[in-house]
Structure formats: structure tokens, C-alpha cells
Simulated assay, not measured.
Amino acid sequence: MTVQLYARDVGSGTPLVLLHAFPLSSAMWLEQRQGLAGRFRVITPDLRGFGGSRLGDDEPSIDAMADDVARVFRDQGVRRAVVGGLSMGGYVAMALCRRHPELVIGLVLAGTRAAPDTETVRENRLRQAEALDGDAGVRVLVDEVLPGLVGPTTMRQRALVYGRVRGLVQATPPRAAAWAQRAMAARPDSFDTLRELRVPTLVMVGDEDALATEDEARAMADAAPDSELLVMPRAGHLCAVEQPDLFNQAVAEFTAALARTAKESPDGAARPRG
């Protein structure tokens, strides 16, 4: 079935579509909306089942989530945008590049992975999905997923940030989280998608990220033809939430450079910088 996503849409200028991490919602992008809307049109959808978006009854699929985001472009009147995704949002962003490449003028991948799950990780996701379908609500997310979302520096020094992330995890609808875990467990390898990209790519990773490592980020940057890698200090998996000023600065510079290139080219398309 067709699911219409709820999306926050603020600011004006070059469109910047940001896709949230699991198991959060577009609420995680609060400081990006505040920090970037003065220069860009920032659109932050709730992926299906999360926040204000309905889940629908499709089979769990990252491709279905990417098609949902493509409909957001149409619904919001956006022809092309810089697309950024963190963690699960990165999986959806790469699927969008594979299925709807004409929509993307630049790609930001943060705290995410192009490789499919190992068998161990896949089995763990499916076990958690079963638990989420049970009577315990989101306890499995609080006990097992939350500890890996932020780095040790945030745990020690940023109690308010950790508390905010914990609140977002606790607000997750269990059915949506179970659906998303099954979708992520079934996702394909995305390295071919990265190799075939015709747009610039910015890869970011926190230096304390234990879920998507610096080596994995470097492998993605190496695969994409026109890419740069930024390792963010004192940040774990949710680098945009833990280090919002550094994240916003990097995304703003990347997006502004693409906007200039698009303005200078005859067909309005961004050109590779390399």
C-alpha cells in the first residue's frame, strides 16, 4: 500500500532531505533544522511507522522506505535534493540512489554501512523483532540498542543528549521497530550502488562509533567515485546528535558547494568535483 510520510519542512534554498536513524524519528534532526534552515530548505521525514507516519502493511523492505521518500519529493514539490541519512537513514538513502537516482544531487552518509548484515547481526535483528512483537514493548531497544547509539564521551559528558536519545527510543512504536529490523536484516549489499554514483558523496563517522566503524566508512568513501570522508571526534553512532555543530558545518559546506556547481552548470546539474 502507499504510505504518505509525515515530514517537517523548514527554510528555503537548496533542498536538503535528512533521513533519521533507527529507532528514532525526525525529531532527532532538531538541531539540523535549527542550524541549517537559515541557508537551505531542510526536509526531515518520519520513515514509515515512526513519528507521525503510518506503518502500512507492506512486507518489510528498505526499498519500500526509499519509495516512500521519493513520494515525499513529489508531495513537497522537490525536483532534486541533497539527501542525507544516518544509520538506517543511510540504508534508505543508498536505496533511493539505486531506485530514484534522478532525485539526488549529492549524498551524505553518516554512521552507516554499505555491507549487508553478517549472519550474526541478522539473527540478532530478527530476534529483537520477535521480542518487539511480544508484550514487552520497547524494552529490548532500551536494553540492547540504546547503549550503542552514543559514544562514551556523550555518556560521560552530555547527560542531556543521552537523556534525549533515551526518550526518543522509549517513544518508538514497537510494531514499526520490528518492521524496520526485518527490513534492515533483508537489505542488500550497496557497494555497487556507491560505485555507480554520479554525484558527490560525503561520508561521516564518529570516532567512537562501535556500530558503523571508521574502516567501514572509509570503504564506502573509497567505493564512491567523488567522495570525501570526515571522522568526527568525540562522537559515537549518532554523530549528528552528539556533535551537531560539526555535523551542520560539514553538511552546510557540502550542500553550498553543490548549489554553486548546479547554478554554474548549463543544465542545473551538479558536476563531480574531482
Results as ranks from 00 to 15, higher is better:
residue 189 D to M: 03
residue 155 M to R: 15
residue 88 M to G: 05
residue 125 R to E: 05
residue 189 D to S: 07
residue 272 P to L: 09
residue 206 G to W: 00
residue 64 A to P: 06
residue 152 P to D: 13
residue 160 L to Q: 14
residue 136 A to N: 12
residue 229 L to D: 08
residue 5 L to P: 03
residue 42 V to Q: 01
residue 262 A to H: 01
residue 23 P to F: 08
residue 274 G to M: 12
residue 75 D to S: 15
residue 270 A to M: 09
residue 106 G to I: 10
residue 118 T to S: 14
residue 150 V to F: 15
residue 73 F to D: 02
residue 220 M to Q: 11
residue 86 L to Q: 13
residue 174 P to D: 08
residue 141 L to W: 10
residue 32 Q to N: 11
residue 98 R to K: 12
residue 108 V to K: 05
residue 98 R to D: 14
residue 194 L to E: 02
residue 143 D to H: 09
residue 244 P to E: 06
residue 38 G to Q: 07
residue 114 A to K: 09
residue 16 L to C: 09
residue 254 F to R: 09
residue 36 L to S: 00
residue 6 Y to L: 08
residue 149 L to M: 13
residue 198 R to I: 08
residue 190 S to E: 12
residue 227 S to E: 03
residue 62 I to D: 04
residue 222 D to G: 07
residue 239 C to R: 04
residue 230 L to V: 15
residue 233 P to E: 10
residue 105 I to L: 12
residue 156 R to N: 00
residue 218 R to K: 14
residue 89 G to I: 03
residue 268 G to K: 05
residue 87 S to E: 00
residue 177 A to P: 05
residue 245 D to M: 14
residue 172 T to H: 03
residue 170 Q to R: 14
residue 57 D to C: 11
residue 140 V to G: 06
residue 247 F to R: 06
residue 134 G to W: 00
residue 212 A to G: 12
residue 9 D to N: 10
residue 59 E to P: 03
residue 132 L to A: 08
residue 170 Q to T: 01
residue 269 A to Q: 14
residue 7 A to R: 06
residue 200 P to F: 02
residue 154 T to L: 11
residue 80 R to K: 13
residue 271 R to V: 03
residue 233 P to F: 00
residue 67 D to A: 14
residue 118 T to H: 12
residue 193 T to S: 05
residue 58 D to L: 08
residue 174 P to L: 09
residue 193 T to L: 09
residue 151 G to N: 02
residue 218 R to H: 06
residue 71 R to T: 10
residue 155 M to C: 11
residue 192 D to I: 02
residue 108 V to P: 04
residue 256 A to Q: 13
residue 15 P to D: 00
residue 107 L to A: 00
residue 169 V to H: 01
residue 211 L to Q: 13
residue 78 V to S: 03
residue 133 D to V: 06
residue 218 R to S: 06
residue 6 Y to S: 14
residue 12 S to P: 01
residue 267 D to G: 09
residue 36 L to Q: 03
residue 18 L to V: 03
residue 21 A to N: 10
residue 201 T to S: 12
residue 152 P to I: 07
residue 222 D to Q: 14
residue 55 L to R: 01
residue 202 L to W: 03
residue 146 L to C: 03
residue 224 A to Q: 07
residue 186 A to G: 13
residue 59 E to F: 05
residue 267 D to L: 15
residue 192 D to Y: 00
residue 245 D to G: 10
residue 259 A to C: 04
residue 255 T to P: 01
residue 30 L to V: 14
residue 15 P to Q: 10
residue 27 A to W: 02
residue 156 R to V: 01
residue 21 A to Q: 13
residue 190 S to Q: 13
residue 176 A to C: 09
residue 217 A to P: 03
residue 25 S to L: 00
residue 83 V to W: 12
residue 201 T to M: 09
residue 172 T to S: 11
residue 167 G to P: 05
residue 190 S to I: 04
residue 190 S to K: 02
residue 1 M to N: 12
residue 141 L to I: 05
residue 143 D to K: 00
residue 66 A to C: 06
residue 51 G to A: 03
residue 215 D to Y: 11
residue 174 P to I: 04
residue 223 A to F: 11
residue 90 G to W: 12
residue 16 L to W: 09
residue 143 D to G: 00
